[in-house]
């Protein structure tokens, strides 16, 4: 079973907003000079921002935050966010991969610019 997929535009404004809200002011998330100095292609999104957006596929579907029991992922590739008036697009799909004992495991796929950015992204939810 597939969950409704979602697309999240990520611009520099998104990153600055998230930096302020999360308290993560690491310069590689807002300063292009520093980001490229350390070998990144450009400013990159916070991994935790990507993780936080991706789970919305699950939480918006669940409609009850207390049903989320477990959520984990690996930060495999960064979401690169150019300052070109467009930014990046994060596309997230989710499907139920197992159901057992009142719990469903949902596997998420998060892609930006054709690259998988989260690995082994899975959420366990209570469905009883």
């Amino acid at each position: 079973m597939k969950l409704p997929s979602k697309s999240f535009p990520i611009t520099r404004e998104t990153l600055i907003r998230y930096a302020g809200a999360s308290g993560d002011f690491n310069v590689i998330h807002w300063n292009e000079r520093v980001a490229t100095d350390v070998g990144l292609p450009n400013v990159i999104a916070h991994g935790m921002l990507t993780m936080g957006l991706a789970i919305r596929v699950v939480t918006d579907w669940l409609d009850d935050p207390s049903r989320l029991l477990d959520y984990g992922c690996r930060f495999t590739r960064p979401v690169v966010v150019p300052d070109d008036g467009e930014g990046a697009l994060l596309e997230v799909t989710g499907k139920v991969t197992s159901i057992d004992d009142g719990r469903a495991v949902i596997t998420l796929a998060a892609v930006s610019a054709g690259v998988t950015v989260l690995g082994k992204a899975t959420a366990t939810v209570r469905i009883d």
Partner: peptide, 13 residues
């Protein structure tokens, strides 16, 4: 240091 992976187990929100 970079963040490699992350997992949360929730007892409640």
């Amino acid at each position: 240091v970079v963040h490699g992976d992350q997992r949360f187990e929730y007892a409640r929100p």
